[in-house]
């Protein structure tokens, strides 16, 4: 079994990968959208710069974006493992990665307005731990930048202005509205994580968890899968484009989950992820062997 110190070191490796190496499916989607833009357009030039940046960050193991965001960990762990130890290891890993310039000192105390200087504060990072039957630990990390987090939003249905009722058509209307309102501010082309149902907090958490799904995957529920594809196609007709410069690609993917709701409430919670979709996943065996996940 790994010691807390060894866990911290493994988690620093996961942070390094997330901050510097963009997942291959995201790079592929960006290449395709680059080719779909007109030669000489602002959109094509922005995507060329983005693709060049991804290569530089990967080869130098330096942050893709200077806003290294909120680190969000989802950890599956074997029965009997201490979640307090895991949370402490995540926190220490964030501090260490900040010291190595893999992360920016990104935590501010809103009362004193002082930056803590080491990237960690109450609530940063957020760590979700869940027990499972496997003897291995699975770590999934998302580094979610502040610019795109500011584009997140929550709707309550029905919404008269959008003619959105409590059904999938209503969900579609909310997500398209949020994408239009975000313009380029969330660093488009973005990826949308959404959740319908749940309460105000669980809905947002689920919308973020949806962002862990690889871009080419399909929702197992056919009608939601169709909705996801539809919203991608429709939002790309809005001509918002990369960085809001106008163009054919506004979002790279839409991922939608759902949770039980109270009879009185129907929330649609939406999280916007920038093109720098920094997610990393690892399976860590009891002997410390790491297998990287898509």
């Amino acid at each position: 079994m790994l010691t807390p110190e060894q866990w911290t070191a493994k988690l620093v490796e996961v942070i390094a990968r997330a901050s510097t190496q963009l997942p291959p499916d995201v790079v592929e989607a960006l290449r395709r959208s680059r080719d779909a833009e007109i030669e000489g357009s602002l959109a094509r030039k922005a995507l060329d710069s983005i693709l060049h940046n991804i290569e530089l960050a990967a080869s130098n193991w330096q942050p893709i974006c200077q806003d290294t965001g909120t680190p969000l960990f989802w950890i599956h762990h074997p029965i009997g493992m201490s979640t307090r130890m895991l949370v402490a290891a995540c926190e220490e890993a964030v501090r260490r990665a900040t010291g190595k310039q893999l992360l920016r000192p990104n935590a501010v105390d809103p009362l004193t307005e002082k930056n803590t200087g080491h990237g960690q504060a109450p609530g940063i990072p957020t760590v979700h731990c869940e027990e499972w039957d496997s003897p291995e630990v699975e770590v999934r990390l998302l580094l979610k930048g502040g610019g795109c987090e500011n584009c997140g939003t929550q709707y309550t249905l029905p919404n008269q202005a959008l003619k959105a009722d409590r059904n999938l058509e209503g969900v579609r209307r909310c997500i398209l509205d949020a994408i239009q309102k975000a313009q380029g501010k969330g660093c488009s082309p973005g990826i949308i994580g959404a959740c319908f149902g749940g309460d105000r907090s669980s809905g947002y958490i689920e919308s973020k968890r949806q962002l862990l799904r690889p871009l080419p995957d399909h929702n197992p529920i056919p009608e939601i899968d169709a909705l996801e594809q539809d919203i991608v196609a429709q939002s790309n007709q809005l001509d918002i484009g990369p960085m809001g410069f106008g163009g054919n690609t506004t979002v790279l993917g839409v991922k939608i989950g759902h949770l039980g709701r109270l009879p009185a409430s129907y929330f649609v919670s939406i999280s916007y992820m920038c093109w720098a979709d920094r997610r990393a996943g690892a399976r860590i065996a009891a002997d410390g062997t790491v297998t990287w996940l898509e």
Binding site: A46, L56, A57, Q62, C65, P105, K114, N115, G184, C274
Partner: peptide
Amino acid sequence: VGGTAQVLAQAVVEVEQVFMLKEFGVP
């Protein structure tokens, strides 16, 4: 272009000085 932190850092050839670092923090 948002997010192109490496491309743009390469175009920064020198950091000459800094104001309010202690008070405001790095970012």
